[in-house]
């Protein structure tokens, strides 16, 4: 364990009569899984070593504040936009005929290689405070980012969520009638990322 002192340059505030705690030591102390002797030895070190004590205190707090897992299934905020999409699809079906347009599912394949955008519909105007982007969840994504750029490619706004829906907030300044590009990026649990194709939308007049 002594080698940790050499490697951890910033952990030099300690009184180093004993070596700093290994990750195993710190975690076992937090979990309360040590023998009495081992616990007493660590307590003695922590009483003197600010660096290790802070690590234990901060890690304890982090463990107590891990966000709860999201519920499985369709997030409730998805229900409204999806219901609206179904309504639009129904209205576009002529009696006895094929739909003239499908409002949903563009921006990529559904095999996980890209993110599939479900909303907004292709011809829907972009309205700050009203437009919602909805996409199909990746199996193993942890975070999504929505980016809106203007025609020159300059980023206008970005938002993040672990959900699969995000509204464009009212504060985003859009020039009426101007064309914008939107994209959703997803961060996978393995650290890789995946994106939707860029979708062109026009700000409402």
């Amino acid at each position: 364990m002594g080698h940790l002192i050499l490697l951890r340059g910033a952990r030099d505030t300690a009184m180093n009569a004993t070596p700093h705690l290994s990750a195993d030591d710190a975690a076992s102390f937090i979990d309360g899984t040590l023998s009495d002797d081992a616990r007493a030895a660590i307590e003695r070190h922590l009483a003197e070593c600010d660096s290790c004590r802070e690590e234990v205190a901060i890690s304890t707090r982090l463990l107590a504040t891990v966000p709860a897992s999201p519920r499985r299934g369709v997030p409730w905020r998805l229900v409204l936009p999806l219901a609206a999409g179904i309504l639009v699809a129904v209205m576009l079906v002529r009696p006895g005929g094929r739909p003239t347009a499908t409002p949903t599912e563009r921006g990529g394949a559904s095999d996980g290689s890209t993110i599939v955008l479900i909303a907004p519909a292709p011809d829907a105007p972009l309205v700050a405070g009203r437009t919602r982007l909805v996409w199909r969840a990746l199996d193993d994504s942890v975070l999504y980012r929505v980016v809106i750029k203007d025609a020159s490619g300059a980023e206008l706004w970005r938002g993040e969520t672990s959900d699969t829906v995000l509204a464009v907030p009212p504060g985003v300044h859009l020039t009426p009638g101007k064309q914008y590009v939107m994209r959703v990026d997803g961060q996978r649990t393995d650290g890789s990322s995946v994106s939707s194709t860029e979708v062109s939308v026009r700000a409402s007049q």
Binding site: R8, G9, A10, A23, D24, A27, S28, I30, E55, S59
Partner: peptide
């Protein structure tokens, strides 16, 4: 293993984060 993997991951992850920051 002497502790929960989640506790161990918190300590290890934090050390990697701090190291990266430095």
């Amino acid at each position: 293993p002497r502790c929960r993997v989640s506790t161990w991951l918190v300590v290890v992850s934090r050390r990697v984060c701090l190291d990266l920051y430095r």
